[in-house]
Design a protein around this nucleic acid. Sequence first.
DNA 1: GTCTATAAGGAGATAGAC
DNA 2: GTCTATCTCCTTATAGAC
Lengths: 214, 214
Amino acid sequence: MPKGKNTKERIKDEALNLFSQYGFAGGSVRDIGKKAGVRESALYNYFPSKKEILNELIKDAKKYSVGVELLTDELLDRLNKPKVFIENFVKILLKEWDSEKQKKYLKLVLIEQFRSEHLQSEHLQGEYLQSVDENKISINLLIDETIKIWEMIFTQMLNYRFIKKHDPNILAREFVYPLFMLRLQHLTTEKTDWKLLNKKSEEHINYFWTSIKK
Amino acid sequence: MPKGKNTKERIKDEALNLFSQYGFAGGSVRDIGKKAGVRESALYNYFPSKKEILNELIKDAKKYSVGVELLTDELLDRLNKPKVFIENFVKILLKEWDSEKQKKYLKLVLIEQFRSEHLQSEHLQGEYLQSVDENKISINLLIDETIKIWEMIFTQMLNYRFIKKHDPNILAREFVYPLFMLRLQHLTTEKTDWKLLNKKSEEHINYFWTSIKK
DNA sequence: GTCTATAAGGAGATAGAC
DNA sequence: GTCTATCTCCTTATAGAC
């Protein structure tokens, strides 16, 4: 285990490892503790319950999913060369999505998004309804964030008349959906095949570009 | 519980319900039995282990995922009107994907595809390696099946010069990926919003069609 | 803040009667 | 083919010493 990290971070890391592979129910507090180098009893000094570990991970997954911060001014300066801009930003996105942490967060979301808890413990419905929003996440949420960003980008390109006239929201979806599918498809492979991924993303960009260029 | 079904089918149905919501680890044999109307001990007359229930469900998920059988001769006769053909076949696909069973199978696949079992029980590695292929499934598998079908379709359309020249595989991916994303996005909603889904699929078809029509 | 010890219950699976 | 009863192990969580 890494030295510099404090115990709480180590626990969260190992919980993320296990939950993103076996699901919340499939990863035990015992195993999390063992891999983090503490007894399960010590773990309860940091989290009041197993469930609360998951809640924090979900909050983190939301926090690190946005991606607007990747749109730097330096990048936006190239907006007048639309295809170059698209290529550059896609490269940045793919690299970000390829990080181990992002992959694990996405797996966690895919695995946990279908659980509807009030069915399991009916007596907690009151509490459940209070906390449902902040502890829930779905793949829709992640995609919508990405679509919003690209809708902004295409709106700008349209304003400057750099591309053919289209509904920017449709453009964003048509562009992001195939990109997101590439992201999903490369989740199940152990190690990202960058050569293949780059080829496919280039093919997508080229196809998309010919359909929007003036 | 439905009368006409035999016990084994009832068990599989309830296991699919639970596994697709809470994952394999999250659904207990006890609960499956309770919902299917049998004691857990009776359940073991039909399946040697909990794991074997999952294996059968995964096999079923594969079996019912193909979709080539939806390509009827009647449909293929309309190939000379490419846009009409596309619209009709998409309607059929969306309807198929909207069935409760298909939704549950897809959820199961999304939830269970990341589990790599030999890490969890090292002493079973021999057995594991034997059965790894037939008991494994991933979202990639499902998508590839759908892409293959559309690649066939676009190849035909290209042969007949009905559409602009393109790599049929790229065409298939560009067409199927957004469609598949719609499928994914409507998995997390309790009840399919058909009005919204139809609108979005029409927008996709229209956008795609303008980019391939001659 | 981490440990040992242990509680209390749920899990998968089996034995044997009917 | 289904049941009751039970085994054994693993689970989350807590108490209290250091």
